[in-house]
Amino acid sequence: MDTVASTTKMNRDEIFELMKKFITEVIGEEFVEEMDITPESSFTKDLEMDSIEIVSFSEKIKAHFGNQIDFTGWLSSMDLDQLINLNLGMIINYIHECR
């Protein structure tokens, strides 16, 4: 079970590693091994995550960071094209700026 993180500010590399861990938990290690996950990786095209997997991923972020960030609120400001083109780097930046 993920817990709300301490208030120590994470740098971008640490956030990236945490995101990779969440992605691995959602889609499974066997698929992640075949992928080269980078900050440029897009969720739908490169990581091939479908909408219910992105829900799981979002829930992991919310469980980890708690009230420190409004991740669902941030996602809800995007239209479908923006969601489709969402990449890891954009999320890393968002989390980094919030904290």
Partner: peptide, 13 residues
């Protein structure tokens, strides 16, 4: 389908 049809936009509104 699944609940994600609401999760990202409609539910937060």
């Amino acid at each position: 389908s699944n609940l994600s049809v609401y999760y990202f936009n409609i539910a937060p509104i």
